[in-house]
Simulated assay, not measured.
Amino acid sequence: MSAPEAWHVTRTLRAMELLAVAPRSAPELADGLGVHVRTARRVLKRLESEGYVMLTEDRRRRYRPTMRVVALAGQVVERAELTQTAVPHVSALREELGRGCHLCVPSYLSALCLVHDAGDVGSGCRPHLRELVPCHCSAAGKALLAWRESWRDAVLAEPLGSFTDRTTTGPESLRRELGRTVARGYSVEDREYEPDTRGLAAPVFADTGEAVAALAVVAPTADLPADRYGEFGDAVMRGAAALSRKLGFVAPGEQPDPAPANTARAA
């Protein structure tokens, strides 16, 4: 593949990622891609002709992904090695803690839930399966931000939304909090995304040492009291470490597993 062809493929995939976050017009997409509006319009017209996007009824002529993309994404997520490897670890943590647990990966300015186990009773706490949540005020998202430096810089350069009166949106305040997260070993989200839930999360590493996902527990505030953060945090870190070893990650001072899984890459 020539360099121009590779750039076209990359640009198209980047366009789909931006459209997955929110519908966009050609000028809005051009701004997000850093290209001329004519280039963005050509990309949108090609995607529309192939059935990947459709024009909304918005007077600004915004485009959004079609169900063809949703179906494709669902197949990729379900069959991804990281997803399949993580399922028993997420379930084991849920059984240990008796609260809903999930695994998320970074996706543009958000965290995408790949695996969710709320148990037999179920839980209304977010994120739900395949749901995007803002990374700066969700437990899994903050764990990913803390251990993914380049992604953190990109996210904190963007305007961040406030969801409750406890949401932190200032970049420097978030940097300080993420520094404390690394020192602690797990992130804490305390009524920052939803007004009556809390969450804790720890990073999951691939064999390259990259934090490719975050393992989290999220529950109503009454079921996740602050005075039990240490207990729950230790369990989340143990679960994340076990999954990391399964992905081939070897922490300093540890011996590799006899047959590690192939490296899983983040979405």
Rank of each mutant, 00 (worst) to 15 (best):
R148P: 00
P258F: 00
H136Q: 06
G124L: 14
A30S: 10
G161S: 04
Y52L: 10
K142C: 00
N262C: 06
G51Q: 10
E57R: 15
Y193F: 13
A86H: 04
E48W: 07
E231Q: 15
V133A: 08
E50N: 08
E95W: 11
A139F: 10
F232T: 15
V90M: 03
P4Q: 07
L112K: 01
L156Q: 02
A201I: 05
G230Q: 15
L243G: 02
R175N: 05
E177G: 03
R62V: 07
A251R: 12
A267P: 05
V21L: 12
T56E: 05
L129V: 08
A22V: 12
P252M: 09
E158P: 02
P171M: 04
R228I: 06
E81H: 12
R175L: 05
R191I: 06
G100T: 07
G179Q: 07
G170M: 01
A6G: 05
A22D: 12
A20H: 04
G100H: 11
E192D: 09
L44E: 01
F232Y: 15
R38C: 07
T12R: 14
V21D: 14
S25E: 06
G233T: 11
A22K: 11
L174R: 06
D257A: 09
V43F: 06
G34I: 13
A20E: 07
E81K: 03
L200G: 00
H8D: 14
Y193H: 13
L55N: 09
A201V: 05
V182I: 13
R130P: 02
T167R: 01
M16V: 15
E17L: 09
D58Q: 06
G34P: 08
Q255K: 11
P220G: 12
A219F: 03
G124C: 09
V76R: 14
K45I: 06
A206H: 00
G170D: 13
A267H: 07
A222Y: 13
R198A: 08
P127C: 03
A3C: 03
M237D: 14
T12N: 04
G98E: 05
R42G: 00
A154C: 00
